[in-house]
């Protein structure tokens, strides 16, 4: 296990050499991730690892890709998607144009899930889905809409549990262990790199999804991100977080109203 002081040294050096600030990331998780890549890549001395990160930008990028968590799935928490389908989309559907933002979209599984819901509600044509992440590599995967075929059984169950009525396999073409999702779904997606630590608001949205991203941030950075979402949300827009995340430590109560027990808040002023 690397030492706390070593982790702090790495954070400082990365900031100094590359300008990327991990200083407000949750330490418990960050330490596990750094420790994992340190051992996977066969380092035995911390100095050696540090010097590789400093001197080799290619390796630095690889390290960042590996320490940011990119585990995601389609229709994760089906009950969440049931609420989106039955309660949120009918409201958004009354608008002439719908802007959505998936912040920290990783490889895009949730973005495609959302496109499927929009299509089934007949709203995809008037929607624009922005999908952002700090990690350029995962965005490339997301753009292609190619996911492992072995996951499709679970995803199709999630889809059905969320209230999906179609044959899920109609949404992709299976080929040599991969599932390529229909181009039609990606038509309204815009992918771009965006960093919640340092970048600012870039548009106004009707709904923002940021699920299981804030858990990697400390309270201060969570506050920054949630205020960035607040700046980017239209009044009566929605903010959707992961099932164990909350805005209550970050924003003044009264500005948002929570939907029942779901982690979806509506901006009311």
């Amino acid at each position: 296990m690397i030492e706390d002081i070593e982790l702090e040294t790495l954070i400082n050096e990365v900031y100094e050499y590359y300008g990327f600030d991990f200083g407000s990331y949750s330490r418990a998780s960050l330490k596990r991730r750094v420790n994992r890549i340190y051992h996977l890549d066969g380092f035995t001395h911390f100095e050696q690892f540090l010097s590789k990160v400093r001197s080799d930008p290619e390796y630095y990028r690889h390290m960042v890709d590996e320490i940011t968590v990119n585990v995601t799935e389609m229709f994760r928490d089906p009950s969440f998607y049931t609420v989106i389908r039955n309660q949120i989309l009918p409201l958004l559907g009354t608008k002439p144009f719908i802007r959505l933002w998936h912040a920290g979209c990783s490889t895009g599984e949730e973005v495609y899930s959302m496109a499927i819901l929009l299509k089934e509600a007949g709203l995809l044509q008037k929607s624009l889905i922005y999908a952002t992440d700090i990690n350029a590599k995962v965005l490339e995967t997301a753009k292609k809409g190619i996911f492992p075929l072995r996951m499709m059984k679970e995803y199709s169950e999630n889809y059905r549990d969320s209230g999906g009525k179609e044959d899920f396999s109609n949404y992709y073409t299976a080929n040599y262990g991969i599932a390529k999702f229909n181009e039609e779904l990606a038509q309204k997606m815009v992918f771009s790199q965006h960093n919640l630590v340092s970048d600012t608001s870039f548009n106004e949205f009707d709904i923002i999804f940021c699920r299981n991203v804030l858990i990697y941030f400390d309270n201060d950075l969570q506050k920054r991100a949630i205020n960035l979402f607040d700046d980017s949300l239209a009044v009566l827009g929605f903010l959707a977080l992961g099932t164990k995340e909350t805005i209550k430590y970050s924003i003044s109560p009264g500005k948002y109203k929570q939907l029942d027990r779901e982690k979806i808040w509506r901006k009311i002023k």
């Binding site: 949750s26 998780s29 596990r32 968590v69 585990v71 299981n212 164990k244």
Partner: peptide, 11 residues
């Protein structure tokens, strides 16, 4: 976490 809070992780 060292400040006596709990964190979650989906890795």
């Amino acid at each position: 976490e060292k400040n006596n809070t709990l964190s979650l992780d989906t890795s």
